[in-house]
Design a protein around this nucleic acid. Structure first.
Lengths: 213, 213
DNA sequence: CCGTATCCGTGGAGATACTG
DNA sequence: CAGTATCTCCACGGATACGG
């Protein structure tokens, strides 16, 4: 990216990560941990292979990622965030928190990945009853599965399924995530097609994070 | 900007503000308040007039800014952030905090504006002695003037000059801002050409903000 | 299978000149 | 002063082919 040539830390940050796709690559590495080229390509639907290749080289030169050889069983290169790269997490969180306002309107052409289903509640919702027993919520949106573990004041998310979840939410992603992030209520989510099975009362302990100015 | 078509709030945010120059336009409106076209052009050295024009139209369509007629004395259009536009402030702060790491290396071609000199301490530094009397620091970097008011736990910045500052810092911007944001110490700043006049002890009450993960 | 390199069509970015 | 019009050029996106 051409430099803005401005002595301003925002402009400097954008000089490094302002290119198209760059921040989304960092997002994937934050959510998934060290990735192979193909993992990244799968997590970034729409990116061209040559562009991903270019971006990874640029990120490596900027020392936001390192490329390293994976241990024996994999035998391929892994891309991993450096400390400087990981330090982008607060910026991505702030941007993602702002972007929630655009998650309410459904778009059929939008793709979905399990890790995105998991990170939104984990980043933008807290556990309002830290002393209550931990609970597990299973999310199932359009064949994409994620698990939320709620307890000790935190909400943690991961892709995949749980054995005995306390609550299972299914249906359109915008209904499930809208409910979890607090932009719509239970009745509205249900009207949008959300299904729920189990202890829906556990939803009451979730508290949406609000922006800190 | 072409949409990423991903159901992810970060991607959605970048769909709206990921275009080149867009976030910097928001930065100027946050720092300067409502602006005329020319104010923005001056605050964004390097932008082409047509591109600024395009971006303003896009921002207006996205309802991040409103274009309104200024009161009689000015008789021209003013661009003002909406609530949704102002809500980008935490994201810009997080990005700017991350970008501070690139402020240490001097680049002769970088431009500087007084409002950038003012916002960095105001956003990234706090007053560590909230009960001490308020003090005023004058910054003078390359003919660019800004004032910091430190007191009651806060640091506020503005472009311009002060009558009787407690401390005056001058010299290369990277020395002055590097010192204020805590990336270098007083001796190093002095070695880089920073000059100081007045009560340098007031610097001890400044506390750099660290990223909140 | 993993990743890179090349070619090409399209659109956005940037510079300049011009107009109300 | 506040933009608009026009032009060139490069980045992006997509497809394909190639090297390890």
């Amino acid at each position: 990216m051409r430099s803005y040539d401005q002595y301003c830390s925002i402009a400097k940050a954008l000089d490094v990560v302002g290119d198209r796709w760059t921040l989304l690559i960092v997002r994937e590495l934050l959510l998934q941990g060290p990735c192979r080229f193909t993992d990244l390509k799968n997590g970034l639907p729409g990116i061209a292979a040559n562009l991903l290749s270019n971006r990874l080289r640029e990120l490596e030169q900027a020392e936001l990622i390192v490329r390293e050889d994976a241990p024996p069983p994999v035998a391929t290169a892994l891309y991993r965030l450096t400390d400087a790269g990981s330090a982008l997490e607060p910026a991505l969180k702030a941007l993602g928190l702002w972007g929630i306002r655009y998650m309410a309107t459904p778009r059929p052409e939008d793709t979905l990945r399990a890790q995105w289903l998991a990170y939104a509640p984990a980043w933008f919702v807290t556990d309002g009853e830290p002393h209550a027993p931990a609970v597990t919520i299973q999310l199932d949106c359009a064949e994409v599965y994620a698990v939320l573990e709620v307890g000790e004041g935190r909400v943690e998310g991961r892709a995949g399924t749980a054995d005995a979840p306390d609550l299972v939410l299914g249906g359109p992603p915008q209904a499930v995530l809208g409910l979890l992030t607090g932009v719509i209520d239970f009745a509205t989510a249900t009207a949008l097609g959300m299904t729920s099975r189990g202890r829906r009362g556990v939803l009451d302990r979730l508290r949406p994070v609000t922006a800190t100015h």
